[in-house]
C-alpha cells in the first residue's frame, strides 16, 4: 500500500467534510456563496450558514430555481456552491445545468450528496445511480467523486481554485478513511495510485476505493497483487493511468456505486477501447436496474461492489 493510503476502521461524514471546507473557503474568500433546497442541514451547508447567514440561500424545495440562481450569482461575479441530493441536482436540474451553467461555462460548483445507493433505505427514488451518466456528456463540466473525508475537503477547495462548472458527488452517512494525510498530492484530473500491483487493476471511485483496498489486502494473501487506482475525477479522466494499467497488469475491473451504464466503468472502457483493448475488462456496479433497498453494506454486497465482490470478480477474471 502507498505510504499515504490506509485501510481504516474509522468512517467519517463526507457531507461534514464538505461543510467544513466550504466554511473555510468562505472565511478566505468573500466571493464564496452557497445555496441549498430545503436540505441545507443534510448537506451541512448550515455550517457556513451559521457563520455567514447573508451568503447562504435556502430556496426551499425548488432545485431548479437553486441552480439557475447559482448561474446568476456566477454571472454577478460570485462563486456559488449549490448543494442538495445528487438525484435531484443531476436529474431534475439537468436542463438548467446544461444551458445556464455548462453551455455558458459559468463558475458554478455543485455538490450532490446521498450519491449512489447511500440513501439505502429511502428507496430507489432517492438513489442516484444515473447522475454521472447524465452529466458526463455535458461539455465544460468537471466531475469528481471523492473517496473519503480528506479527499472531499481537498476536492471542495480545489473546485474553488479551478474555474468552471464542477460537480462533486459524495454520500450520505460516512465513508471509511483511505488517506492518512492531506498531502498526497490531490489534483483534479489526476488519479491516485493507492496500492501497487501488476497482476490485475481495480479502478474505483467513491466508497469503492476502500473496498478495493480491502480486496487487495485479501488478494495479496492469495498471491495476487492488485493495483488499486482511485479515479476520483471521472471527467476529465486520467488516461495515462488507464493506459499504464492496460500495459502493465493482467486486466482491469472498475468499481462504482452507479449504474454500470454511463459512469466510471463506461468512462474507463472508452479509453480502453480506443487504445487497443485490455487483456481482461469488467465493470462492477449496479446492473441496468433500479437498485434494491436495505442496509448499505448489504446493497454493496448484493451488487458485488464490496471488497468480497471485487475480490471474487478479480479471481474469476484471472481464472483462479
Amino acid at each position: 500500500m502507498k505510504e499515504y493510503a490506509m485501510i481504516s476502521e474509522e468512517a467519517r461524514s463526507t457531507t461534514e467534510a464538505f461543510g467544513k471546507a466550504l466554511t473555510s473557503l468562505a472565511d478566505e474568500h468573500k466571493d464564496v456563496v452557497a445555496l441549498s433546497a430545503d436540505l441545507a442541514g443534510s448537506v451541512k451547508v448550515t455550517l457556513m450558514q451559521k457563520k455567514y447567514p447573508e451568503r447562504v440561500f435556502d430556496v426551499g424545495i425548488a432545485e431548479q430555481n437553486m441552480v439557475s440562481m447559482a448561474a446568476g450569482l456566477a454571472l454577478g461575479g460570485l462563486v456559488p456552491f449549490a448543494a442538495t441530493f445528487s438525484v435531484f441536482l443531476s436529474l431534475r436540474d439537468l436542463d438548467q445545468l446544461h444551458t445556464d451553467i455548462c453551455y455558458q461555462d459559468l463558475n458554478v460548483k455543485m455538490l450532490g450528496s446521498h450519491g449512489g445507493t447511500s440513501f439505502s433505505q429511502a428507496g430507489s427514488t432517492h438513489h442516484a445511480l444515473e447522475d454521472i451518466a447524465a452529466l458526463r456528456g455535458m461539455a465544460n463540466l468537471t466531475i469528481i467523486c471523492p473517496a473519503d473525508y480528506v479527499e472531499t475537503q481537498l476536492a471542495t477547495k480545489a473546485a474553488y481554485e479551478k474555474y468552471g462548472p464542477i460537480y462533486i458527488r459524495i454520500n450520505r452517512g460516512t465513508d471509511y478513511d483511505v488517506y492518512n494525510t492531506e498531502s498526497y498530492g490531490f489534483e483534479i484530473g489526476k488519479s491516485v495510485l493507492m496500492n501497487e500491483g501488476n497482476d490485475f487493476t481495480c479502478i474505483a471511485c467513491g466508497s469503492m476505493v476502500h473496498e478495493a483496498l480491502v480486496a487487495a489486502r485479501s488478494l495479496k494473501e492469495k498471491g495476487v497483487d492488485l493495483r488499486v487506482i482511485n479515479m476520483h475525477t471521472i471527467k476529465p479522466i486520467d488516461k495515462d493511468a488507464i493506459l499504464k494499467a492496460m500495459k502493465e497488469t493482467g486486466g482491469i475491473v472498475t468499481a462504482e456505486d452507479h449504474n454500470v451504464i454511463g459512469g466510471l466503468g463506461s468512462a474507463v472502457s472508452e479509453v480502453v477501447a480506443e487504445n487497443g483493448g485490455a487483456k481482461k475488462f469488467k465493470r462492477l456496479g449496479v446492473p441496468d436496474e433500479f437498485s434494491i433497498i436495505g442496509a448499505r453494506k448489504d446493497i454493496l454486497a448484493h451488487y458485488e461492489i464490496d471488497a468480497a465482490g471485487i475480490e471474487k470478480n478479480v479471481l474469476a477474471l484471472l481464472n483462479k
Binding site: G123, S124, T125, G294, A295, D298
Partner: peptide
C-alpha cells in the same frame, strides 16, 4: 427498510 424489502421510506 430491511434489505431486499419491497417497502422502504418511499413506496414503489
Amino acid at each position: 427498510n430491511h434489505t431486499g424489502s419491497p417497502f422502504g421510506v418511499h413506496l414503489d
